[in-house]
Design a binder for these strands. Structure first.
Lengths: 347, 347
DNA sequence: GACGGCGACTAAACCGGTATAGGCTTCAGC
DNA sequence: GCTGAAGCCTATACCGGTTTAGTCGCCGTC
């Protein structure tokens, strides 16, 4: 029968000291003589002692874990390139800090709030990530009410007591529009994310402003739910209009790839007859034909920075807002000169 | 100042009984009179008492959480349709059972073993999922050594003390090959996953056997790492051969989509000049042109069943192996008759 | 009336750490 | 030689539950 894992009491006994002193020594606190400290550490090593996170959690009232709630229809979550990379970045920070990541995946916004409540009520986590911010996002008020540290991905609209880690996605959209305008496009459409989501409407506004700056009317905007099927439907809709676009700016890559499929199916040559751009740079977009021009966001470092900020919040610091390097437009093959004669003076 | 959250002692005091009895009443154990039980439950309700998972974890020596370690290069994890769906399925079982999911994402196999060790040493989890099984998978021995309940996705090669939850992916590959053979294809290639991974080599063997059954030689097989870039490279390689294939069976969808890109770039019409099939059904594959014929696996129920089995293991039952419905081949547009005259008698 | 047995309940130990009050030495200072 | 303070250490309470040993009162039985 294998011996039970040693506890701090076993270490104390072996080193001939009290439990309390062992705790002090192991946590590197003052008030322990060097010889005793060595003896204790040696005893701990000999016994193969490992601290019990459970016991520590109970006594110091911390969970040593962070919570992430992902709200997605199970069907949609597939193919979304953001979360896996984001989580990889989070993990990069958490592992060395001895923290764990507790993940919840829920189907809708109601279940989402319940999931946060549960995570906090069970004291499973010390802080939470708030991703995919929406207008009047109830989670901010909830986190405040639950008195749990949080970090938001992007600046919420309503005033928030939590630090924000943001990545300017407007710049990428603007660069995409400018790129298309420079190529002579005038009838540029946007397949937007859901308006209730902050990044959905923000990208849309960035699109509209960039169009306005170019002296163009942003009259072709279709709102979607970020799904590939939505991208296909929106594209069919746009191409059926009498004044169909010569270029489409999609709010994410899966929709752009689906849109490409629709265009090709309709017999349009991309990019010669229709230019398209994506967002968020999935690796598959790089390999389709034509390779997808897109806006690259660094989800991995977003995750890493957000985790770091959240850990600092939990530690009692008051980290300020952080702005990550802006998303970059990456021109590839799916964008080229407008097929139409360009009435404007060109560069 | 808001009152601290109530503990079991507060409930006991309000109900005028001892802590122990409260615990009994709340856990529905015998030895509590009906009236007292009601009084206790009412007191708990009045105070808004919620059990502390931490305290329970310490006293009953359980974590009330399950562990999942995902081993992926952060770049690759993107675009992989399996895990998000699998996790959604897991969550579906865990949430009602009051369990949480602790997720680790690590870059390589060495870090993977360390992550399992850490999860168990910290007593963060009561059981672990073993996904993406490999040949001579060290994790099985490790889990046995750590004495932690586990469930494997698929049957490992080495003998394993853990229940397996399997989905026959061979059937899907075989159906794909048979479908292609029926369409007159003879030079069928396979872009396989890594040989060290069980499902990589199993799908490859299924391919080879299906080919043999059709009287064909499986001479065009390229091993890859499941990445879109690998799929592109493998396709370029295959198409450059003197005896290039008329059909390619890919081990996953991202590679198939990348392969489609390569073929189109080379001026090949798909499916007329080259048929392709994917695996695992990403939603984007449905919307590209031509729509990708693929093998649909139900990752969501795989997750749900695996979670259920693992929970039963932890509860001390000895659940047997489970076989889920086999993966189904879903023909769409990317497969059609072979462009070559078919010497064989056709149906 | 003593006894046994049972149901309802309490007190206290326990899980494995941390935190705190206080005790014992030792040494400097007067 | 006495006092005070610093340094090192112990004992103990505590976190919030679960669990076990044991107490108490009541009933039926002989």
């Amino acid at each position: 029968m294998p011996a039970d894992r040693p506890t701090i009491a076993d270490v104390a006994q072996r080193a001939g000291v009290s439990k309390g002193l062992v705790s002090f020594a192991l946590n590197g606190r003052p008030g322990v003589s060097p010889q005793t400290r060595d003896r204790i550490l040696e005893a701990a090593r000999d016994l193969g002692w490992q601290p019990s996170v459970r016991a520590r959690a109970l006594s110091v009232n911390r969970a040593f874990a962070l919570g992430l709630v992902i709200t997605r229809d199970p069907e949609i979550v597939t193919g979304d390139p953001f979360y896996p990379s984001f989580i990889a970045g989070v993990e990069r920070e958490l592992a060395p800090a001895g923290q764990a990541l507790v993940l919840s995946v829920v189907p809708d916004e109601e279940a989402e709030l319940a999931a946060y409540r549960k995570l906090v009520a069970d004291r499973r986590v010390d802080g939470v990530f708030l991703t995919d911010l929406r207008h009047d996002d109830a989670r901010i008020e909830l986190a405040r009410e639950l008195n749990v540290p949080a970090v938001t991905l992007g600046h919420p609209e309503t005033s928030s007591p939590f630090p924000a880690v943001s990545m300017d996605d407007r710049a990428g959209i603007e660069a995409a529009v400018e790129h298309l305008v420079r190529l002579g496009h005038r009838r540029i459409a946007h397949v937007a994310g859901p308006a209730r989501m902050l990044h959905g409407s923000r990208r849309r506004r960035a699109f509209e402003e960039a169009m306005a700056r170019a002296g163009l009317r942003a009259e072709m905007v279709v709102e979607t739910d970020f799904r590939a099927a939505d991208g296909a439907r929106a594209t069919r809709d746009l191409l059926a209009r009498p004044n169909y676009p010569t270029a489409i700016v999609y709010a994410n890559d899966p929709m752009a790839i689906a849109g490409l499929g629709v265009a090709q199916r309709a017999g349009l040559r991309v990019p010669d007859e229709l230019s398209i751009t994506g967002f968020d740079g999935s690796d598959v977009g790089e390999h389709i034909f034509p390779a997808l021009s897109t806006v690259a966001t660094d989800a991995v470092s977003w995750g890493a920075v957000a985790a770091r900020v959240l850990l600092r919040s939990i530690a009692g610091e008051q980290p300020g807002d952080t702005d990550l390097p802006a998303a970059r437009f990456v021109p590839r093959e799916s964008t080229t000169r407008s097929p139409e004669p360009n009435p404007r003076a060109d560069v």
